[in-house]
Amino acid sequence: MKTKFQWNTLFLGVIVLVLAVFPFVSDSRTWTILLTQIFIFSILAMSYDILLGYTGIVSFGHAMFFGMGAYTTAVMLKRMEPSIGVFILSIVCGMLIAALVSFFIGLLTLRLKSHFFAMLTLAVSGLFLVLAEKWRTVTQGNDGFTFKAPEFFKDRMMFYFVTLICLVLVYLLLRRFVNSPFGRVLVAVRENEQRTRSLGFNTLHYKVIASVVAGVIASLAGSLYAVSLRFVNTSVLTMDITLDALLMTIIGGVGTLIGPIVGAGVIELTQHYLSGLAKDYPIFERWIIFFGIVYILAVIFFPRGIVGTVREKLWKRKTKTRPVGKGEVS
């Protein structure tokens, strides 16, 4: 196991290196923006996976934390000066707000069963959406508002690196988190909450902290997203964001941290490619159907997603004593 772990790390290191060198090699603006987008959604999807994959909680309200981050950053950059200091401050503020809100919502709702929790989060995030629509003096509702990004980010490449660094940091942090004794308890809650409770763990306490961590990271993703667009409107709070995170997590692989990143990449790239095709074939304007179908098939046949399935196969191959003449695993 020890060697495999190091191989993984090496592999990831190489990928990060390639991504870091990428903007120097290619000066394609489209790709830089697309990759930035992928990094941001990877962060969001990873935070979602803390809930879905590790703790086994289905939340339909993840967009509200994303939206909180996005709005905090946008409003602060607009009202105060567009500088790096304010940007960092706004990220911290967004995280604090998200932490507070997720703490209280978690405390109230996480004691409910999965069905009720899913519905209640749906309702609460709906409430935040309505709030943002109505509080026009600050949010300007659905019309949204543009704002100036810090001078430092005028160069797309700088922002690319910032999001890449954020992604790597969040990944390392979350890996540390899920491999800690605390993370093990979360997995135990997913597997069998009643038994975990009877072993003497206060599961509510663990679930609330998991939801706070997920909320805080989602808020970071939201802040980055707002800066990447230099524009914010109520669409950051809609169900679509939650659905994106859900699709990325499920298709990439629940219960792994790499999975959501892979899922974010796959979905953003396919979406980009399919909407390119839509010019010739109008059916591709409804690309979400394809994702929906893939997603349903994934839930039925590959509940572990891309990464989980590949990992399982690799693991099976390794544990087999005799080599079997089956097809190679890519």
Binding site: L52, G56, V58, F60, S114, H115, A118, L243, L246, I250, I288, I289, F291, G292, I293, Y295, I296, V299, I300, P303
Partner: peptide, 14 residues
């Protein structure tokens, strides 16, 4: 339950 919630939501999208 978790799969049911996920799959019916996906079907809703479709």
């Amino acid at each position: 339950h978790v799969q049911q919630i996920l799959i019916t939501l996906g079907f809703m999208l479709v």
